[in-house]
Amino acid sequence: MENTKQMIPVWFWVGIMMLIYGILVTGAGIYYLINPPQSYAAKWTNPNLWWGIIMLVVGVIFMFLGRIKKESN
């Protein structure tokens, strides 16, 4: 029962979601470099920055994993 319609793999969706959120969170991190926030942890580490970059990288990796291949399973 082979389907002619090719579905975009779930990893692509995970990747694009992480990429968008990664960009937003990293953006906030860059902003906080200039204007340090009130939040407790952000005073000693800027979690938005490093966590956002991790999300960005993971997002790109997942989008790569989820690209449509000719012989997709």
Binding site: V25, S39, Y40, N48
Partner: peptide, 11 residues
């Protein structure tokens, strides 16, 4: 609330 600045809170 203690650890997350805005952006991460949304997440």
């Amino acid at each position: 609330a203690r650890y997350y600045p805005s952006g991460l809170v949304g997440l």
